[in-house]
Simulated assay, not measured.
Amino acid sequence: MIRVLIADDEALVRSGLRMILESSGDIVVVGEAQDGEAAVRASARLRPRVVLMDVRMPAMDGLTAAARVLAAPDAPKVVMLTTFDLDEYVHEALRLGAVGFLLKDTRPEDLVAAVRTVAAGQAMLSPTVIKRLIGAFAQRPASRSERARDRLALLTAREEDVIRAVARGLSNADIGRELRLTEPTVKAHVSRVLAKLGLANRVQAAILVHDADLT
């Protein structure tokens, strides 16, 4: 079972999310929090695998709470939820290490799929968010592309192949089939790439590849 913590200041939203997730059969909601401070405490106490974190909450906002949750040892995967798709929320959430960013109008089946995806170690972004990120990439200055390419120059040819595939949203299994590698080998390459580049997760790796214009 995938253990999930829901953090949202609206009781009705929390109830709706719990109902959707627990109807899946393989997800259990182990706790709820109505503000950021409660979310940080609950995450430490309940040790969920995934935290659904609302961006705007009282006492402590979701981005601040996410940073504290992600700083803990063996931190859970954090998916940010919001009714707003403003760029600053997306970029800051990904910078902090969140592996998902979903709008609250996401369909129930997509929400369940997102939780399963991030629990399996993959990243999940809503189509709307992806469009916003692509738009940001198109407007990036040349100096940013140059810095990104300089960072990627640290990688071997095989590691670059792997990170390009990651940027296309492929799973480890898909990358293995494409590059004729075993899945454990792909996983080892991804871990080594993230460590070399000082990245927190696959989303940040994908952003770096896009910045370098290597997709």
Rank of each mutant, 00 (worst) to 15 (best):
M1N: 00
M1I: 14
I2W: 05
R3P: 03
L5V: 01
A7T: 06
D9T: 09
E10D: 02
A11I: 08
A11W: 06
A11C: 08
G16Q: 14
R18P: 04
R18L: 04
L21Y: 09
S24L: 02
S24T: 09
G25L: 01
G25E: 08
E32Q: 13
G36Q: 12
A39P: 11
A39R: 09
A42C: 13
L46Q: 09
P48W: 15
P48M: 14
R49D: 07
D54L: 04
V55T: 09
R56Q: 13
R56H: 15
R56W: 00
G62C: 04
G62L: 02
L63A: 11
A66Y: 08
A67D: 14
R68W: 04
P73E: 05
K77T: 01
V79Y: 05
V79W: 08
M80D: 10
M80N: 12
L81P: 00
T82K: 07
T82Q: 13
T82F: 11
F84A: 14
D85I: 11
D85V: 03
D85E: 06
Y89N: 12
Y89K: 10
A93P: 06
G97P: 06
V99F: 07
F101A: 08
L103S: 13
D105A: 09
D105C: 07
P108H: 00
L111P: 12
A113M: 07
T117M: 06
A120N: 01
G121F: 03
G121C: 10
L125A: 03
V129L: 11
R132D: 00
L133R: 01
I134H: 13
G135Y: 04
R140T: 10
A142R: 13
R151P: 00
L154R: 15
L155E: 04
A157R: 12
E160T: 11
D161H: 03
D161Y: 06
V162E: 13
R164P: 01
V166H: 01
A167Y: 06
A167E: 06
R168Y: 11
G169D: 03
L170Q: 05
L170M: 07
D174Q: 15
I175H: 01
G176I: 09
R177S: 12
E178I: 13
T185H: 15
V186I: 09
R192S: 14
A195H: 10
L197V: 12
L197G: 15
G198D: 10
G198L: 04
I207K: 07
D211P: 01
D211Q: 13
